[in-house]
């Protein structure tokens, strides 16, 4: 089965190690950032319980949520894009795609086998990242209830309070929602990868497009374009940390993400199944 082969190749490649190392480094940097902020605010007498704006609500869960949000916006899409480039363009460039195509396996199976492995890995990576952020938060800061105030995360316009256990359940939901959101940059990278034989070009182009879409969706001059950009819908999972979850709104964003992912995949698959391999 092509999935088993792709999985073995992924495990044997350096990509998982690289991704995990980068995400762990990112978490440590976040921790150092919060610590240094607390030091500056408290005149050098900070412990983690006294960090950030308000000692009453910062804890390991807040840290994990901040880390998850920034990791999701800045890092995880890059690793998703990397998979598209490595799985399709890399195989095309190195000639190993030909090795697969001269076996009795359909292009459909190959394409979706690669996609399944890439998506599975992205989902697992997201889970590992959230788990690592929570554990790091637990050991460095300690857990408590989750209190959120309007601010950087913009998850709610009004202060929110979630008991610890509820907050942990919301983290699990946020992991699933974020994984769905990462399907869009992954699908985009698959589409781009069908145009090039170079993994580096494919990853570079996918990352560049992601960044452009992200910037456009975060600048209100381009308000009319926002609904058409997956980056606008991608961070909607933040609403899961509200006391009352607006499910309909979340469903709207999920549908938009699914639609855009399916569009990219349809374009990618169309090109992949029809193209020649010179």
């Amino acid at each position: 089965m092509s999935e088993r082969l792709e999985l073995l190749r992924l495990v044997r490649s350096r990509r998982p190690l690289l991704a995990l190392a980068a995400l762990l480094l990112f978490l440590v940097l976040m921790l150092v950032g919060f610590w240094s902020y607390a030091q500056a605010r408290s005149g050098g007498a900070a412990t983690f319980e006294y960090t950030y704006e308000n000692k009453s609500y910062f804890n390991g869960l807040t840290f994990a949520l901040y880390a998850f949000f920034f990791g999701f916006v800045l890092l995880l899409p890059l690793f998703a894009a990397l998979e598209g480039g490595a799985q399709l363009a890399g195989d095309t460039g190195s000639g190993t795609l030909t090795l697969l195509l001269v076996r009795p396996v359909s292009k459909t199976r190959l394409f979706f086998g690669k996609l399944a492995v890439a998506f599975g890995w992205t989902t697992l990576l997201t889970a590992l990242f959230v788990a690592a952020a929570l554990l790091l938060g637990l050991f460095a800061v300690g857990w408590g209830d989750l209190r959120l105030y309007p601010g950087v995360l913009q998850s709610a316009p009004r202060p929110q309070f979630l008991p610890r256990d509820v907050a942990l359940q919301r983290f699990a939901l946020a992991w699933l929602a974020a994984s769905l959101a990462l399907l869009a940059p992954l699908s985009l990278s698959f589409w781009i990868a069908t145009f090039t034989r170079s993994a580096v070009n494919a990853v570079g182009a996918a990352v560049a497009l992601y960044l452009v879409a992200h910037v456009i969706s975060e600048v209100h001059f381009f308000e009319a374009l926002r609904p058409w950009l997956f980056t606008w819908h991608a961070t909607a999972w933040r609403a899961l940390f509200r006391e009352e979850i607006a499910w309909r709104e979340l469903a709207h964003h999920a549908a938009a993400l699914l639609g855009q992912s399916a569009l990219f995949l349809a374009l990618a698959f169309r090109r992949f199944r029809r193209r020649e391999e010179p």
Partner: peptide
């Protein structure tokens, strides 16, 4: 893709 787009539009708050 088409169904999801229509769904997203219908659900747009």
């Amino acid at each position: 893709a088409a169904l999801a787009f229509f769904g997203a539009r219908a659900l747009d708050p």
